[in-house]
């Protein structure tokens, strides 16, 4: 201590180790703290912009704010009661239901078919793949503009269909099949919605093709081979082995497509708008027009909350179950 040269004693060495250990520990705790600081801004932003704003919208939906001047006095469920008795909103619910069902069904079937075809070791696979995938890189607005032109009843695809004696009205039709009376509306599939379904299918089928193709590529050739050796026909290999293995992919595609279709706005707004008798109207379009064109803020907020609930009903269980699956 008092002379210049010191040799470290065993004690000192041990102290050094201890110091290093505490240093390391302190370093890690600082890092721990920093790691939380890194993510904190995002947590706060999402807490405000997602959860806080949803709460605020919920509050507006229970208020009397149906003019340009904000009026946040409590109105109870008045706006919701109004909506469920409203001709336009009833039509929206019907349209969303059939749009969603048809859209998902076709995207699944067509996607699976194309994926299986592409998986047959074909020539020019990447060319075909790109043809099915590229619409996904486009905006729904672009798709809407182009398909509006294609489904113009006096031209477009009808120039071909005329040769077969067909002349569908596409999105200008006001027919609802079968059109039974229900509430204020005719319940059934509005013919006009088919035009929008086809446009949406054109844009989104690539997604299910990509998902199924990735799923198919993940199934080992040995498994298929084993099934064949066991005497399964090629058809059975698909129906008994491969399709069941693709179930999780199907669930994912359904969830993704359902949430897209329940909140769809831009495609319909660009392609047809609400349509005569609201045959192609959906909650997203109604919400936009009533809030930002009509200044019925409370009604718009109520539509938005109903849209949110319709998505949350299956997204929340899906998120929770995938969290649990990952944890196990």
């Amino acid at each position: 201590m008092n002379n210049g040269i010191t040799t470290p004693s065993a004690q000192q060495l041990n102290d050094g180790k201890a110091v290093a250990a505490t240093n390391k520990k302190r370093g890690i705790t600082t890092d721990r703290l920093l790691s939380v600081l890194f993510i904190l801004p995002s947590i706060i932003l999402i807490a405000i912009f997602v959860y806080g704003f949803i709460g605020w919208t919920g509050y507006v939906s229970l208020s009397n704010w149906n003019s340009l001047v904000p009026d946040l006095s409590f109105a109870g469920l008045k706006n919701y009661v109004f909506l469920f008795q409203d001709f336009r909103f009833q039509a929206d619910l019907r349209n969303t239901l059939f749009f969603t069902l048809l859209f998902i069904a076709i995207v699944l079937i067509l996607g699976l078919l194309i994926a299986v075809l592409l998986d047959q070791h074909i020539r020019a696979e990447s060319l075909f793949r790109n043809i099915f995938f590229f619409p996904m890189a486009l905006s729904f607005v672009v798709t809407g503009v182009v398909w509006q032109w294609l489904f113009n009843p006096s031209t477009g695809v009808n120039l071909f269909l005329k040769k077969f004696g067909l002349e569908p009205m596409w999105y200008t039709s006001v027919t609802v099949i079968p059109g039974v009376e229900w509430g204020k509306i005719q319940f059934g599939i509005p013919v006009a919605i088919l035009a929008v379904v086809i446009a949406a299918v054109w844009q989104m089928t690539g997604f299910s093709v990509a998902m199924y193709l990735a799923g198919l590529r993940g199934i080992s050739d040995e498994l298929r081979e084993a099934a064949r050796i066991d005497g399964a026909s090629e058809f059975q290999v698909y129906t008994k082995i491969i399709f069941p293995l693709l179930m999780p992919v199907t669930v994912s595609v359904i969830i993704i497509m359902a949430h897209i279709s329940l909140k769809i706005f831009d495609l319909i707004y660009a392609m047809t708008g609400p349509g005569a008798n609201f045959v192609t109207d959906v909650p997203g379009v109604y919400m936009f027009e009533t809030t930002f064109r009509g200044n019925y803020y409370a009604n718009g907020a109520a539509i938005a909350i109903i849209m949110l609930l319709s998505v949350a009903i299956f997204i929340v269980p899906y998120l929770i179950s995938s969290r649990k699956r990952e944890a196990s």
């Binding site: 947590i43 999402i46 605020w56 998505v311 998120l319 969290r323």
Partner: peptide, 21 residues
Amino acid sequence: DWVFTGLLFGMFIPYQSILIP
């Protein structure tokens, strides 16, 4: 993990439900 799930929910919401605020 729950923070992550809480963040993820934000990508599924219809943006109409936050647009007015």
